[in-house]
């Protein structure tokens, strides 16, 4: 187990280097630091010195791949690609275009992101499992048919509409909750309520349908028939046997997204003005702040890889048949 995890973590390093290479190609080769400076300072009214100054202040003035003038190892280490990759690996994201420390911003904004993402995940999971159980219990009935059709219809609606309609109905017409905004502490609850509801409703279509397939796969297996033949009620079989086994793929599917919860949701956070990492990213995209976008891409990749490792570990915990080698 320990050896396996070590190996997985070591295997993550070349992948992270690859991720860095891709972002480096996008942000420093296709789009040179000079372009960034020009975009940032404005096209026409900028002088040569201002551009030089901007590039220097961001530390982008080194050679990109190879420094011919330096000696020894410095030929490689004194380059943009090396320093940028090193900084990312040490989680030193540098400063944004507005001069703020990105690492500090990320730390501050994780809290609000989690305040929305965790309840959304938990309530979403509970709702999806509940609906899926209901559909499976009444399988091959009209309830199942219409339920699944309704799920497909829910899946076909753009997530933007859920947010817009949720804000419009609950926020504007009924005035139950504030339309958007955020304050820290426990009073955040009333601001978090609407995004959580929207996220649960938006996810129930695809989620419940997917879990229903998992449950049905279990229900069709031989051990369920045996249990029924032994005289257990269909209720008992569904909850005790089928659900337990279907929980393996459900839980491992959830584990993979747990680390990415830190990143928050781009849409929800920006619509509801929640100062999390999602809205941070959206703001950076709109103001073309490449340093932030690059940091977020890297952070997202790290968290995703952590999620994959956690998934493998959780398999061994919930399913004794799986052994890691």
């Amino acid at each position: 187990m320990f050896a396996y995890i070590t190996r997985r973590i070591l295997y993550a390093i070349p992948i992270l280097i690859g991720v860095n290479l891709i972002t480096f190609l996008l942000f420093f080769v296709v789009n040179t630091p000079r372009d960034m400076a020009v975009t940032h300072l404005g096209d026409k009214y900028t002088t040569e010195e201002a551009i030089e100054q901007w590039i220097k202040s961001h530390g982008y003035d080194k050679p990109r791949f190879f420094d011919a003038e330096a000696s020894g190892l410095k030929k490689i280490t004194n380059t943009l690609i090396f320093t940028q990759t090193k900084n990312m690996f040490l989680l030193q994201f540098g400063t944004s275009d507005t001069g703020r420390d990105i690492g500090q911003d990320v730390k501050e904004r994780m809290g609000p992101s989690l305040a929305v993402a965790i309840p959304a995940l938990l309530f979403g999971l509970a709702t999806n499992i509940f609906v899926a159980l209901l559909l499976t219990f009444f399988r091959r009935s009209y309830l199942d048919l219409y339920g699944v059709s309704f799920c497909v219809a829910l899946m076909s609606i753009s997530s933007l509409f859920y947010i817009i309609i949720g804000q419009f109905l609950l926020g504007k017409i009924f005035r139950w909750v504030p339309i958007s905004g955020y304050i820290g502490g426990w009073s955040a609850a009333k601001f978090v309520l609407l995004p959580v509801i929207v996220s649960v409703v938006a996810g129930v279509g695809s989620g419940a349908r997917w879990y229903r397939t998992l449950l049905l796969e279990e229900v069709n297996k031989d051990y369920i028939r045996t249990a029924r033949a032994k005289g257990l009620s269909s209720m008992q079989v569904l909850f005790k046997h089928a659900l337990k086994n279907a929980m393996i793929p459900i839980l491992t599917g959830v584990v993979v997204v747990i680390p990415t919860l830190f990143m928050g949701s781009l849409l929800l956070e920006s619509f509801f003005s929640i100062p999390g990492l999602g809205s941070y990213t959206i703001d950076a995209i709109r103001s073309q702040d490449f340093a932030i976008v690059r940091s977020m891409v890297y952070l997202g990749a790290v968290l995703y890889i952590v999620g994959l490792i956690l998934t493998d570990i959780s398999y061994t915990l919930v399913d004794p048949r799986v052994r890691l080698q």
Binding site: I22, V30, T260, Q288, V293, A301
Partner: peptide
Amino acid sequence: YIYTTLSSIPNVLLIVASVLVLEVVIS
């Protein structure tokens, strides 16, 4: 290796990064 690397970047962010770069190229 190629597809693991590509898929480990959150999809939206990769699209966003590419489009942002494209915009600079167009301008």
